[in-house]
Amino acid sequence: MKVNGVLVEEEVEPRMLLSDFLREKVDALSVNVSCGVGRCGSCSVILNGKLVKSCLIFAAMANEGHIVTVEGLAKDGELHAIQKGFWENHALQCGFCTSGFLMATYSLLKKNLTPSEEEIREFLKGNLCRCTGYTNIIDAIKYASETLTGIPKDKLKEAFRW
């Protein structure tokens, strides 16, 4: 499979979870496991263009797939607008859920660059946060949406290159 564009070749047991695979074999330590049952979204990654919860998938099921994690968001040392949005708006405290929120936001904004607050709330329901009360996360997503709306098309394409 490819992870953030880099080819990864490993032999794994059939029962190894994708979340464990990414953490242990690929060192993609942004992938945090919190609930283990697909509810909290902390382990969310993008697999072949779709937002998935990596604790619910076996690594073998992602064979030959392309996975994007938070490690793939920033480019050439510059934070992605979504990451900036979270930073500027104090949208993380303990940060354990943050990777999942970043990936879910990426997935949302790729489909809908200017979501309403209601659309944000609806789309992010699969991600739980315990520290922030969510208000600043909503502001962060709006900030990212506004930043990205204002940039040239080629840059926008670059921002959503995965």
């Binding site: 330590l29 945090n32 938070v70 934070l79 990451q83 500027e88 104090h90 940060g95 943050t98 970043l102």
Partner: peptide
């Protein structure tokens, strides 16, 4: 704004699991 955010936003949070 917080200093510790940068590493977390880059996926480099220094949690026990890591």
């Amino acid at each position: 704004k917080r200093k510790e955010d940068l590493r977390i936003l880059l996926g480099k949070g220094e949690y026990i699991g890591n």
